[in-house]
Design a protein around this nucleic acid. Structure first.
Lengths: 248, 248
DNA sequence: GTTGTGTTTTCTGTATACATCAGTATGTCC
DNA sequence: GGACATACTGATGTATACAGAAAACACAAC
């Protein structure tokens, strides 16, 4: 069902959601999008459908589509889902990994180690931080690949993306945190990744799973803490009509 | 995006897939279905899209839709996914369960216990077995509900359904297995369920998770064994062109 | 000024006609 | 007789016109 035009529309909209151009809650009207993309409403509708299954878009009958706006409760549930899957995958990776998988994981790990050091010494972190994030993602992908379960990998990647959109827009503006604190945190994360790697290397599924579970739990707690500090309200609870009356 | 006609088409097709009327591999042509359901192709297309996201239908551009035909590899992966999620959910259930959740789980357990006994004594099992399966499903649903994670519950239910369609059509015809064997197996399953229940009851997440993991692993192994015995080929590997030439 | 109702607008949902592609059959050429 | 090219068939993909629902608006009544 994915012909050319549908794909064009899908990629067009998806890109804009991921880049933050269409923020959570943004209305996605078929006719408007169709004009922008220069296709008819039909492939746009198909694209929105597909984005809905990705979890990036919400569609209500007769009310149209909008960029998914996640409630805190749902975000927690999603994180837990990811924790369950990704830690399980780490366990599988310890069993099924090949030497090539190990190399790939180690490569990402070395990249993170190098960048973490560089960042600690550098005055302007931002470009390096983007690189670090990329290596981090590479590490997790390498672990999932080593688990040899395509279905699981796909699902985890989906959740990663969702996570990125939601927490990305919620924690857009950085808080005043001391650089030394951040550097220390990055070192801890690096250590954890190393623990995961060695567990997978020595084919110890229980340890790999445990370490990954611990690592993700810490990450999730961290994110949730940031979010509760964030005033952006992107993932804040919806106001009830009564509350709205008071706040406006 | 779910208006009346789309829902009608969705339910119509879904029902027939689940009942086995449309077996795996069955082609689903939009025009044909549209005529049958007395709607136009548009809502049928939407319905097929939705069924694709449920995992029940495969859609290829320009080649149309067909009922999902799962390969053994994919089936294994799906089972593993379910194992990861459902065992995690059991752990959560041990933490988050309320008294009402416990009652619901116990209720299903008692039902299974009663039916297992009755089946062991009855000459004609079939109607009772359907009841047993229903109570089994009720048990698992009750556990997922107690976990208090709607997202996870939804995902697990999706996998349950998929599992049912695939293994249901693959193991349609029963094999000659001694009744005493089956009765013994049912007793073992009952015991496992009881272990899961007591672990959740005494708020022991590690045990609940472990017991559920063990239970499902056993179930999966059993299913896979049946399938490899089955000649239905529904989930058998696709033949390569060369092999096809030989077998026809 | 507020509330309630009726109208209008604007969006989505549906049907349908047309375009396009994949597979098949036919026919010609060697 | 076989291989290749071409036309045909039947499906899906796309555009578009129309129907219908929800929201927005305006206006009248209080």
């Amino acid at each position: 069902m994915k012909s050319v035009n549908t794909d064009v529309a899908y990629n067009y909209i998806r890109k804009r959601i991921l880049s933050g151009e269409y923020p959570p809650g943004h209305a996605l009207m078929t006719e408007l999008l169709a004009n922008e993309i220069k296709v008819s409403r039909t492939p746009v509708r198909d694209a929105l459908r597909k984005l809905e299954t990705d979890g990036l878009v919400t569609i209500q009958a007769h009310l149209g589509a909008s960029v998914k706006k996640m409630q805190l409760k749902e975000f927690r549930e999603m994180c837990d889902l990811r924790l369950a899957l990704e830690s399980h995958a780490a366990g599988l990776a310890a069993i099924n990994r090949t030497e090539a998988d190990l190399s790939e994981i180690q490569f990402a790990l070395e990249g993170m180690r190098r960048l973490t050091k560089e960042i600690a010494a550098a005055p302007d972190e931002q470009p390096l931080i983007n690189d670090l994030v990329r290596e981090d993602v590479r590490f997790h992908i390498a672990v999932m690949t080593a688990a040899k379960n395509e279905l699981m990998k796909k699902e985890i990647l989906r959740l990663h993306l969702l996570n990125r959109v939601v927490s990305g827009s919620a924690v857009g503006e950085k808080f005043a945190v001391k650089k030394s604190e951040l550097d220390a945190r990055r070192l801890v994360v690096l250590e954890k990744h190393n623990d995961i790697f060695t567990a997978i290397q020595r084919s110890d599924p229980a340890a790999a799973k445990r370490e990954m579970e611990f690592h993700l739990q810490e990450l999730i707690d961290h994110n949730l803490r940031l979010m509760s500090r964030s005033e952006s309200g992107v993932i804040a609870r919806e106001l009830t009509p009564e509350e709205l009356a008071y706040s406006s």
